[in-house]
Measured scan of single mutants.
Amino acid sequence: LRQRHVACLARSERGLGFSIAGGKGSTPYRAGDAGIFVSRIAEGGAAHRAGTLQVGDRVLSINGVDVTEARHDHAVSLLTAASPTIALLLEREAGGP
């Protein structure tokens, strides 16, 4: 079961505080899956403080732009754009009992 949710992050002077992996033109985060995933969350960064991202979340869109088939460098450029806030649509595998 997959759950979707939106995370809104305000960029700090240190950026957004998370890294992505995967996407076309880069090493897959999961074998056989060209999706883009949250690969790291920086301690004390914007994403960590927001508490809405988890490592392993699939990134579906960035500020309304679909990145499900995107190249890695395109997703990075969307994240590093000048916008002071970033809205992410994420998909998470629902774990637990």
Rank of each mutant, 00 (worst) to 15 (best):
E69N: 13
A10C: 10
G35P: 02
L1F: 14
R2F: 12
H74L: 12
E13S: 13
A34C: 09
S61E: 15
A87S: 15
L79E: 03
G95Y: 13
G95Q: 11
G35M: 04
S12K: 09
Y29A: 06
L16Y: 13
G15C: 06
L60V: 12
G32I: 02
G95H: 12
P28T: 08
G95L: 11
L88K: 01
C8K: 14
T85G: 07
T68M: 06
K24W: 11
E13A: 11
I41P: 01
G95K: 12
T27N: 11
E43W: 07
E13V: 07
L9E: 04
S26Y: 06
L53W: 00
R71S: 14
N63F: 02
A34E: 13
A94K: 14
G35R: 06
G15H: 05
L53K: 01
L88I: 13
F18L: 08
F37Y: 13
E93M: 09
V67L: 06
E43D: 15
T27S: 06
L9N: 02
H5P: 01
I36L: 10
A42S: 15
Q54C: 06
T68E: 07
R11S: 09
G35F: 03
V59Q: 02
S61Q: 14
E91Q: 09
A87R: 15
G51I: 01
V65E: 13
A50Q: 09
R14A: 11
L9F: 15
G64R: 04
G44L: 05
A31Q: 15
T85Q: 12
T80E: 14
V65A: 08
I41G: 03
R58E: 02
A47F: 04
G15K: 06
A82V: 09
A34Y: 15
I86R: 00
L78G: 03
A34F: 14
G51A: 06
E13F: 05
A94G: 14
S83A: 14
G25W: 04
Y29W: 13
R58V: 02
D57Q: 02
F37E: 02
L88M: 10
S77L: 09
G44A: 07
P84R: 08
L16K: 03
R71H: 15
E69Y: 10
A75F: 03
Q54V: 07
R49F: 08
S61T: 14
T85N: 11
L60I: 13
I20Y: 01
S26M: 06
R4P: 04
A47E: 07
D66M: 05
V59L: 14
R49I: 13
G22I: 00
V38I: 13
G15A: 06
A50I: 07
T68P: 02
R2Y: 12
V65F: 09
D57W: 02
I86F: 14
L60G: 00
A47Y: 06
G56S: 04
A70K: 05
F18S: 01
S26P: 03
L90P: 03
L16C: 10
R92C: 02
L89R: 07
A46E: 15
A82M: 11
R30W: 07
I36H: 03
G44M: 06
I20T: 03
D57R: 01
D33H: 11
E91R: 00
R58F: 02
S39G: 06
A70H: 05
L9G: 01
L79N: 02
G44Y: 07
A70Y: 08
V76F: 07
